[in-house]
């Protein structure tokens, strides 16, 4: 008898996990790119209201298409971020960092700097000395500001969002 009650309890627990997974997973997300911005409207034309970096966690307040309205940290900064900047995986910036906790499984964690990382690149370069990264670093340093893009759009008589409305 006890066994059946136990089984039923387990199934209920599993059921709640299943139901909960969609709701809970969306509440907190993490920034998976080096740097990203929170915007006043769900669009890259929206004014930048805050900036955030790799590994920061955000609380999701609202969703619209590919955009999520999120709040940062204390909740003071709120704005829209694009889906592709966010992951539901927790990001540990250092191995064993306490913010990840011990209860999460390895598949819920993306450890920054782990796997194919700066360290692996450095190792690889030791045995492939013919590879030159000078221009890779130079091209990565070519930055374009939001203002430059806006000028480029208006200066070229472009009207983004007319078709897909994704901007």
């Amino acid at each position: 008898m006890f066994r059946y009650i136990f089984m039923i309890a387990c199934l209920m627990l599993l059921g709640s996990l299943w139901l909960g997974s969609t709701a809970v997973a969306q509440k907190t997300m993490n920034v998976q790119v080096k740097e990203s911005q929170l915007r006043a409207t769900p669009s890259y034309l929206g004014k930048i209201v805050a900036r955030t970096t790799y590994g920061s966690s955000v609380t999701v307040l609202e969703e619209r298409g590919a955009w999520k309205r999120v709040s940062l940290g204390s909740g003071k900064n709120q704005g829209w971020m694009h889906n592709t900047a966010l992951t539901s995986k927790k990001i540990a910036l250092k191995a064993g960092q306490s913010n990840v906790g011990t209860s999460v499984t390895r598949d819920e964690i993306a450890l920054a700097g782990k796997g194919f990382s700066e360290e692996v690149e450095a190792q690889y370069r030791k045995s492939n000395k013919n590879l030159d990264y000078t221009w890779i670093n130079k091209m990565e340093a070519m930055k374009v500001s939001q203002e430059q893009m806006e000028d480029f759009i208006s200066g070229g008589r472009l009207t983004p969002g007319g078709e897909g409305g994704r901007l």
């Binding site: 790119v33 080096k34 590919a66 592709t84 480029f152 969002g161």
Partner: peptide, 24 residues
């Protein structure tokens, strides 16, 4: 190329990459 390309990337389905888009 970078201002043109990065502007276009923002309307793609993958606007944000770890280190962004760069053109050469």
């Amino acid at each position: 190329l970078n201002v043109l390309g990065q502007t276009l990337a923002q309307v793609s389905d993958m606007p944000e990459l770890f280190g962004g888009y760069h053109f050469l």
